[in-house]
């Protein structure tokens, strides 16, 4: 059974949702406190949404230096899977585990609503359950979600097919360059995106279109090829 560690920072608030979605999909989930350096043999680490350290300085900037992030860096360097959702994506960018940065939404307002996104990379541990170019409507909830990167980085991301999620149907909620909602590293074992599939992973909360991310994780074979679970 795939072991999922959900990291809790002071200010994380989507930790239980991520835990629940992972368990529901058939993975074995546990929480890891930000001061811990033991990931409890996790195959997949999830950095959940929230406002770690009150978003002081910049979103994710302080969390990046948490003791647990050293363990996450090691885990990722060894090929372990890491998913950052919303604040988790911001932390991964601040930690330079993913390229680019997330800055203030272009209209300065906090955006909290479901938006249309398209899954463009499906050979990762967290997207393999989806067919390429699947479109779905899942919630975003962020004030600092405008993805930016320099031109060389953007060219590389597009050329290597590393844009995992893209806002579609004219729904870019934050001014992100090229409508980018989420990216991966080259190997695909590190993924970050702004939308919250864990909030749409159970019919109880209105929709379960996001459950596929967690089914992907539950069906992931660590160190092996990805396989999809329908």
């Amino acid at each position: 059974m795939v072991r999922v560690a959900v990291v809790r920072f002071p200010g994380s608030n989507c930790d239980w949702d991520a835990y629940h979605a992972a368990e529901n999909a058939g993975a074995e989930a546990r929480f890891v406190w930000h001061r811990d350096t033991d990931l409890q043999q996790a195959d997949v680490v999830i950095l959940p949404g929230g406002f770690s350290y009150g978003d002081y300085l910049r979103s994710g900037a302080i969390a990046r230096f948490s003791p647990v992030m050293q363990a996450v860096q090691k885990h990722a360097a060894a090929g372990g899977a890491v998913l950052g959702i919303c604040n988790g994506f911001q932390i991964l960018c601040e930690a330079h585990l993913l390229p680019g940065a997330l800055v203030r939404n272009d209209r300065l307002t906090f955006v909290s609503r479901p938006v249309w996104v398209r899954v463009e990379r499906t050979d990762t541990f967290c997207t393999s359950a989806y067919a390429r170019d699947t479109e779905m409507r899942i919630p975003v909830a962020h004030g600092d979600g405008c993805y930016v990167a320099d031109d060389d980085t953007l060219r590389l991301l597009e050329a290597e097919g590393r844009v995992v999620l893209r806002y579609t149907r004219g729904e870019n909620p934050n001014g992100s360059v090229a409508d980018i909602a989420g990216v991966s590293n080259a190997a695909g074992n590190i993924v970050g995106f702004m939308p919250h599939p864990e909030r749409y992973a159970d019919p109880l909360t209105g929709s379960d279109v996001g459950a596929g991310f967690f089914r992907s994780i539950a069906g992931w074979i660590p160190g092996g090829a990805t396989r999809s679970i329908p």
């Binding site: 800055v103 203030r104 939404n105 272009d106 209209r107 300065l108 405008c146 930016v148 001014g175």
Partner: peptide
């Protein structure tokens, strides 16, 4: 300060 050339919505507002 935000890097020159980068969108600065606060500055614009």
């Amino acid at each position: 300060v935000p890097r020159a050339g980068l969108l600065d919505p606060q500055g614009q507002a």
